[in-house]
Design a protein around this nucleic acid. Structure first.
Length: 808
RNA sequence: GCCCGGGUGCUGGAAAGGUAGACAGAAGGGCCUUAAAAGCCCUGGCCCCCAGGGGCGUGUGGGUUCGAGUCCCACCCCGGGCACCA
């Protein structure tokens, strides 16, 4: 008997798919509805790790399942090729990032093929290819024309190690997301995308998409919309109005002081004391991490100035303190120590008045609701009511208005690095910022000798490249030397797949209309904010420009949990990256894929261990061997014949189970378990089944069904086994349908409970009437023994399932 | 602190409010074999036991219900996200 030899089977089927271009789809509509199944594109660095295997194993199962359910499935692949690791590698070794990236891409491509993933390779591209980034630049220019890409002086997050600016989203705990260095504040001219214009739409449109609630919650938190009021406090000495944002206008009567951020431009106007100047200087040089430290004391200095509280005309003192942030609201706050914990701490420390204006709670600060006190004519009102009334009154007096504030900041996209997409802008003395004309794109990335970061882009050293003519006036001009954040590249790649070889446009309207939106997007939960928010923003902006017909890129999202190693996220710097290569070499791609889908629901994270992989391999071997036996023993024939046996019923049960688990909830682990059960039953019954013609036909059917059902997870073995049993190609077969008649059996188990506890299991005819069911349950010997003279007072009958006797 | 998840055998995990522990792993036993590997079969939550069964069991404490791993309240612990956001 032949052994299951994945190393022989797998390349054979891969060769078939490659030669026949089995997974390629055309953009021409046919009778099958279009479906777009997409996994997040990989960042090619080194070789794929176990997390990649998980992503593409899940995605491939979904793609296969939908194909066999009658859809024409677009399932492409590409590479997110620009980025820091390749550049840092270049700094260390001198190897051009293009070369190391090409080597990584080659390795990724090789392994993806080795895994047998069903990719339409005709649409493959990498984002660092000029034929791709030409269109990234083209899209940037459309943003620029609309004022959605702009340049501004801003306090930015500076990573001293990478010598580049980071987006807010790339700062984690005050440190650089990539290298871990403490981020410093710096004031610089940078490029931004105006994503804040889309804050409300990004928030509202989550209603249109089917995404996991935790990802939606994360995006909502990140956008951080809060409704409140802008209220004006006036400094009489300078005659200047200072608006503040507050979510609690109802506490205005309790405002006993006023605080400005150290960065506020008017701090030094309001005070010329050296103490203030010193405080501001120190605050501005401190790192974001130090300033944001959790248990930091509330420091600050009085400016010696006052502002007028608009609700009661009181003069309240003005302070500068670093607990107020310039980036949020107006950079100044009204402080209500009785009803805000931070203001309370500050007041305690600086001996300031704490005035309660809302009743409730025992101790101050009190942040709950209650009736108003010490608030003039609003006394006695509930604070929620007072909220609106105070606001209305302020509005009528011109002292305030309702406002909405967001935590979301504009997307800072410029990087002072080499290995990225050049920003297609020219700086001209005469004309200012000038767009490179579309017909001169791409602005190609020049070769440079030195990639090392020096606080300005390495591109600045390419003097030949930098010096150019102004496209507008023809005079001397210089190219923009910053490159784009790689998240720009990945914010539209899913559109390019629809029309990857188009060299006249980033895509044709027809191609995008045919495939978009992505029906099922799959990727790691670690991209819940950054990539997913940026891609949504891009789609909305492009839709506003009539370049795209959809508002949302990803109709349905599945986020898989991260695979950790020893409890920590895998990373090269930690040296705990697990490569799937050994696993695949030792057991084959089918085993590796099934194993990673079997250890738990893919939505959950898991700590890596390959204990148990033997069990999955054993299961596939058993399927293979039983298939060999059955195929050798009988000729391929039609379907199963004769009276249905339990094995035939089990096959239909498995069809139903796998279809629901995979189709409804991506429960690959229980789906694979169901096929294991079917194969176990085959082993338990195969000798008896093989003895009769009818039995043999049903045995063969059960095995062909197992092969068919395992195909989305183990495509090579599924194809091999199915062909041996039926002579046909499993991927050309429709997904099997469970026969409802065979899902039900003649008798079903009846559970007998006494006071909710199991006492007996009996057989009863399927479809028994409730009174018959109760009669059968009452006949239980075990029930009689346990009843022991007690009287049955109530009987609960759950049709077709159980009877519970309540006795006392 | 706030917002999401989650706590089930030795382990990964399974259970539309209705049989807790499917399917695997590790373990133990048996068959086959000169032997080993592979394969096949059996046992497998804890305690008691005349092996038929009895008692207890899903982080803790309460509650709803004929019936709770599942729903509600409070608490403890673990993971993720956000955080002087006014």
């Amino acid at each position: 008997m032949d052994r299951y030899d994945a190393a022989e089977i797998e390349p054979r089927w891969q060769a078939v798919w490659e030669a026949e271009r089995t997974w390629e789809v055309s953009n021409e509509p046919d009778s099958r509805p279009a479906q777009y199944v997409l996994e997040m594109l990989p960042y090619p660095s080194g070789e794929p790790h176990i997390g990649h295997l998980k992503t593409y194993a899940v995605g491939d199962a979904v793609a296969h399942f939908r194909r066999r359910n009658g859809f024409r499935v677009l399932h492409p692949m590409g590479y997110d090729a620009f980025g820091l690791p390749a550049e840092n590698h270049a700094i260390r070794t001198g190897q051009h990032p293009r070369e190391s990236t090409a080597a990584s891409i080659e390795e990724f491509r090789r392994q993806f093929r080795r895994w047998g993933v069903s990719i339409d390779w005709s649409r493959e591209f990498a984002t660092h290819e000029p034929s791709y980034y030409r269109w990234t630049q083209w899209l940037f220019l459309r943003m620029f024309e609309r004022g959605l890409a702009y340049r501004d002086q801003a306090a930015v997050n500076w990573c001293p190690d990478d010598a580049t600016v980071l987006a807010n989203e790339q700062v984690v705990d005050g440190r650089c997301e990539r290298c871990g260095a403490v981020v410093e504040p710096r004031n610089l001219e940078q490029w931004f995308f105006r994503i804040t214009d889309y804050a409300d739409r990004l928030l509202e449109d989550v209603a249109q998409i089917d995404w996991p609630s935790n990802v939606v919650a994360m995006q909502e938190n990140w956008i951080g919309r809060s409704e409140g009021a802008e209220v004006t406090f006036r400094n009489e000495a300078l005659g200047v109005d200072y608006p503040v944002f507050t979510t609690r206008p109802d506490t205005l009567f309790g405002a006993t002081f006023f605080v400005m951020a150290p960065e506020h431009p008017d701090v030094l106007r309001l005070s010329d004391s050296t103490e203030v100047a010193e405080y501001v200087r120190r605050a501005l040089t401190e790192s974001a991490e130090d300033r944001g430290a959790e248990d930091r004391e509330k420091t600050g200095v009085a400016l010696g100035a006052t502002v007028t509280n608009p609700v009661n005309g009181e003069q309240i003192p003005v302070y500068v303190a670093d607990y107020v942030l310039m980036e949020y609201g107006t950079g100044a706050i009204m402080a209500v120590p009785a009803h805000d914990a931070r203001d309370f701490d500050f007041a305690q420390r600086h001996g300031l008045e704490v005035r309660r204006v809302i009743e409730g709670g025992e101790a101050l600060p009190y942040t709950g609701d209650g009736p108003m006190v010490a608030s003039g004519r609003f006394d006695g009102l509930h604070n929620r009511e007072a909220f609106g009334q105070i606001l209305a009154w302020l509005s009528s007096e011109g002292l305030g208005k309702p406002t909405v504030n967001y935590r979301l900041r504009d997307w800072l996209l410029s990087r002072q690095r080499y290995w990225g997409c050049p920003i297609p802008i020219v700086h001209c003395e005469q004309c200012g910022l000038v767009a490179v004309p579309d017909d001169q794109l791409p602005v190609e990335l020049p070769d440079v000798a030195d990639y090392a970061p020096k606080g300005r882009s390495p591109l600045a050293a390419a003097e030949e490249w930098v010096r150019t003519d102004c496209p507008q006036c023809g005079g001397e001009a210089r190219r923009e030397t910053d490159t784009m954040d790689t998240f720009v590249d990945s914010s539209w790649y899913f559109l390019r797949y629809t029309d990857a070889r188009n060299d006249a446009a980033p895509w044709s309207p027809e191609a995008v209309a045919e495939w978009m939106p992505v029906d099922q997007y799959i990727g790691g939960v670690e991209h819940a904010i950054l990539h997913l928010m940026y891609a949504r923003f891009f789609c909305k902006a492009l839709a506003d420009m009539d370049l795209l017909g959809v508002q949302e890129p990803f109709a349905r999202l599945f986020t898989q949990g991260m695979i950790t190693r020893d409890g920590a996220k895998m990373s090269k710097s930690k040296g705990n990256v697990v490569s799937p290569r050994d696993l695949v070499e030792r057991y084959g791609a089918d085993t590796a894929r099934c194993y990673i889908l079997f250890v738990g629901h893919p939505i959950d994270g898991a700590d890596w261990s390959d204990e148990g992989v033997e069990g999955v391999h054993r299961f596939l071997s058993r399927l293979y061997r039983a298939t060999g036996e059955a195929a050798d023993a009988t000729e391929a024939s039609g379907g199963p014949v004769g009276e249905p046996t339990p094995l035939l019923r089990k096959a239909h049960w498995a069809i139903d189970k796998v279809t629901r688990d995979l189709g409804e909830r991506f429960a690959t682990h229980t789906a694979i378990s169901a096929v294991m059960e079917l194969v176990n039953d085959v082993y338990a019954q195969r000798e008896r089944m093989a003895a009769s013609t009818d039995g043999a036909s049903q045995l063969r059917f059960a095995l062909a069904t197992a092969a068919s059902l395992i195909f989305p997870f183990a495509p090579h073995l599924g194809s091999e086994a199915y062909e041996r049993l039926t002579g046909r190609r499993v991927w050309e077969e429709p997904w099997p349908e469970a026969d409802p008649a065979l899902l039900a059996s003649d008798t079903v188990q009846l559970i007998v409970q006494l006071n909710g506890k199991l006492v007996d299991r009996l057989e009863m005819p399927a479809g028994a009437q409730e009174d018959e069911q109760e009669r059968i349950a009452r006949s239980s010997d075990k029930l009689a023994a346990r009843l022991d003279g007690k009287e049955i007072v109530t009987t609960i009958v759950v049709a077709g399932k159980l009877v519970n006797f309540v006795a006392r």
